[in-house]
Simulated assay, not measured.
Amino acid sequence: MLTKNKIIAVLLVVLTGTAGSCKKDDNKLPVNNAPIPRILTFAPENAGPGDLLTIKGLHFSTDPEKNIVRFNQTVVTAQSVSDTAITVVVPALTVKSAGVTVRSNGKISNRKNLNLVQIKKFQDDFNRANVALVDNTVMPNPLGSVWEIVTGRFSLENNQLATHAGGVETYMLYRAPEADMKAGSDHFFKFSASVTVSGGGSFGGVIFHAQPDNKRFYLLRTAGKMVQLLKTGGNGLGDWAAIMINDNFEGFVDNKKYRVDISSSTAGKITVKLSDPDTNGVMLERTVEDPNPYTGGVPGFYYFGLANPVNIYFDDFSLELQ
């Protein structure tokens, strides 16, 4: 028979064991079996404050509340999420690069650096008073102080740049300070404009990488269904140093406004896109390479009026530089 003291001792042992067991269970943390997220690439590769950036990777949460995106220590809100992509707006940071991380389902990804571009923007919508056709003898240039008429005549009509002079190959260039179309070594450019070309074989288009001599440049022009991307030599127009696109494309018609976008982040590697601004449909997109490229330089507008009358219009000029 157990004595009273022995009974008390047994009870204490049992109670102590039970309490220890409960305490151990209380301290046990739930296991997080979620996979570790991983950042693979950015699209675009470089981006500036205010740009949409897509972070491509693996094992992101499809629940926006379970993703925390940081640029250095700045937390940003996801615009859209999937398990392989998160889209955000790049925050306003003054540094040249930022380390991007994603914390998904309680686990943090690798850190991947994003080069932050400081973009210079140049724009002209030509929304000002009409100006009759003028050439380069009229000074100062009434079309705009930063525009240089190299040859031919241009006017301002109904908030557009226009020309009606036939039988002349003509162009003008944008000579604003700091407008230098560099590509590569952390530089890139995007040049956009609208072009409308009348029929009868007349050409209209855009110039880019125009060098200081006003003769060497690239020319993207259209006439009916024809699209050409040409490079001039030291003698200017007609001295074709390279013909990179020269073909007919279905869907192109006369008297139709096209949106032209030309961009490059690598010297000699140029992407051209022509689209329909009414539908946003892409009509032509192609990347070409030039082993001996022009670098720097400025953009401009070009026309060659073969028909009579000539009705060629340019609008919504935009140049972005890094």
Rank of each mutant, 00 (worst) to 15 (best):
R259P: 04
H209F: 02
T222Y: 09
F252I: 12
M226P: 15
N214F: 08
G224V: 12
K273Y: 03
S155N: 15
T222K: 14
Q160Y: 04
L230E: 07
Y171H: 00
P212A: 05
K225C: 10
N159A: 11
M172G: 05
F252D: 11
V197P: 03
G200N: 00
K256H: 01
G184N: 07
Y171N: 03
L173I: 06
G205C: 03
G201F: 02
L161Q: 03
V260P: 06
G166Q: 07
S275A: 10
F203P: 03
A176D: 06
D247E: 15
M172D: 02
M172Y: 01
L161M: 01
T196P: 03
K269Y: 12
S263C: 11
G204C: 03
A223Y: 06
A179V: 15
E178C: 00
T271D: 05
L173R: 12
P212C: 08
L229V: 06
K190P: 01
S185L: 12
H209W: 04
N214Y: 13
T196Y: 06
R216T: 09
A183E: 06
M172K: 05
G281W: 07
D278A: 01
I270N: 14
Q228D: 06
Y171S: 00
R175Y: 10
A165E: 15
G233E: 02
F203M: 00
M226D: 12
L156W: 04
P277L: 08
I270S: 11
F188W: 10
P277T: 00
N246S: 05
T271Y: 07
S264M: 07
S202Y: 10
N248Y: 10
K273V: 05
D180N: 10
N248R: 09
L274K: 02
N255I: 15
M172N: 04
N246V: 07
K273L: 00
Q228I: 05
T271R: 12
G184D: 09
G268Y: 11
G166A: 03
G233Q: 04
L220F: 10
L156Q: 04
A179H: 12
A267E: 15
E169M: 13
A210Q: 09
I245G: 15
G233P: 01
F191A: 02
E157T: 09
L219V: 13
N214L: 14
G184W: 15
S155C: 13
A179I: 09
A242T: 11
F191E: 02
G166R: 11
M181R: 15
D213G: 14
G238Y: 15
N248I: 10
K225A: 11
D186L: 12
I245Y: 10
F188V: 07
H187A: 02
Q160G: 02
Q228S: 10
R175N: 09
T279V: 00
Y258G: 09
S198K: 02
Y218W: 14
L173V: 11
D239W: 07
D254R: 15
N159Y: 03
Y174T: 11
S198A: 01
G233V: 00
V272P: 00
I243W: 06
K182F: 07
P212V: 05
M181S: 08
K182D: 11
M244F: 12
L161V: 02
D213Q: 12
L237C: 07
K256P: 00
